[in-house]
Each structure stands twice: as C-alpha cells, then as structure tokens.
Amino acid sequence: MCNLTESKFNLDRRKQKGVEYTPISEQAIHLCGTPRLPEQLVFENLQDSSWISRPLEKWMDAAGITKHITFHCFRHTFATLQLSLGTDIYTVSKMLGHTKVTTTQVYAKVVDELKNKAAEAIKLDENILKENQKILQSN
C-alpha cells in the first residue's frame, strides 16, 4: 500500500518486506491534490492491489484516452524518461524499489535503442552531401 505525504511517497514493499521512502517533485504533489495524512492511503477502499486499475480506467476515459494503459506502463515510462534525461541508473533503480541495478538495466537498453534510432533520424539529400564534400575538398 502507499501513502502520499508532503514531499515523499511511502511505499510498503511487500516483496522486499519494508517501507520505501521515495521523494516526489513539487509538481507531482500539486497534480495529486491536497496532501493526505500519513496514515491515509493514496488509493483507499481498494479490496486488493489488482483493483488499482479501476480508478486508472476512469481517469483514462475522462481524458479521452482509448489506449490500454496500466500502472505498470507508468513505471516503464518513468524509468525510461529518467534515464533519457540523465538520471543515473543507480538512482532510478532505487526510485523503482529494485534491490539490484541489473533489474533496472532493461530500461537502459530501451534508452540505447532510442539513441541509436535518433542517430539515424537525420538524412541529408545526396546532392547536399556532394556539395558539402566539394566545398570541404576545395578548402
């Protein structure tokens, strides 16, 4: 279960048997609304963790988003964005609650694939390349 207080997200990690304290940005807190009391859960009245997708489905419908998205998709997006924006893999690993950095490395592979794709994204016209080569050779 998870609690949201003023500046951090408290997550009860059942797999790792402990509580993980993860800081969240001021913007994220603002988007979440009024901070709750420490003993209040972010998603109250859920019978079990599998019910967490129900409020998400309502939010997606309200936003007009028809693509199937799960909370786990948000984890993937979060990790990939953090790595793409320069956050080191160790920090991302800890923010995701991974006990081993190797678990987080799958996201680094996604970022590497994006970099490789980006490197090939710009294609110059062959005529422009030939003109540039002529200019460089004449200097």
Rank of each mutant, 00 (worst) to 15 (best):
A63W: 08
R75S: 15
I69F: 05
A79M: 03
Y90P: 00
R54K: 15
A79R: 02
E57D: 14
G64Y: 08
G86H: 07
I65G: 14
T80Y: 07
K67E: 10
M95I: 01
H72K: 06
A63K: 05
S93M: 00
H72M: 06
K58Y: 10
M60K: 09
W51V: 13
A63G: 07
K94Y: 06
W51I: 11
D88A: 01
C73S: 15
H68Q: 02
A63V: 10
H68R: 04
I65H: 12
R75G: 13
K58W: 06
T80S: 12
M95R: 01
D88T: 01
W51N: 14
T87R: 10
W59R: 09
M95N: 04
G64E: 13
W59T: 07
H72L: 04
F74Q: 08
S84W: 05
Y90T: 00
W59G: 10
K58E: 06
T70F: 12
P55Q: 13
Q82N: 10
M95A: 03
W51F: 13
L85Q: 04
E57T: 13
C73D: 14
F74S: 07
I65E: 11
T70S: 11
Y90Q: 01
T66H: 10
L96E: 03
C73E: 12
F78I: 05
T91I: 13
T77H: 12
Y90F: 06
T70K: 10
T70E: 05
G97H: 04
W51S: 15
G86A: 09
H98C: 01
K94E: 07
W59L: 09
T91N: 14
P55K: 10
L85R: 04
L56C: 12
W59Y: 14
E57W: 15
L96C: 04
W59I: 06
M95C: 03
R54I: 15
L81I: 02
L83W: 00
L96N: 03
E57G: 15
T66I: 12
H72D: 11
T66Y: 10
K58G: 06
F74T: 09
W59E: 10
T66C: 08
I89A: 07
F78N: 02
K58H: 08
K94P: 08
F71D: 07
Q82C: 13
H76G: 11
S84P: 05
T87N: 13
L56M: 11
A62P: 00
L83N: 00
E57I: 15
K67H: 11
M95F: 02
T70N: 06
L85S: 02
L85P: 00
A63Q: 08
L83E: 00
K58T: 12
I69L: 11
I89P: 05
E57V: 14
C73W: 14
C73R: 09
A62S: 05
H68E: 02
K58F: 08
T91E: 09
F71H: 13
K67I: 03
G97E: 05
P55T: 09
I65N: 09
I52Y: 00
W51H: 14
D88K: 00
W59M: 11
K67Y: 03
L96D: 04
R54M: 15
I65T: 11
F74Y: 15
H98G: 01
T87I: 09
K67L: 06
S53D: 14
A79S: 03
T80P: 15
I89Y: 04
L83I: 00
R75I: 14
S84R: 09
G97W: 08
H72G: 12
G86L: 08
H68T: 01
S53E: 11
H98A: 02
F74V: 06
W51C: 15
D88I: 02
I89E: 03
T66K: 13
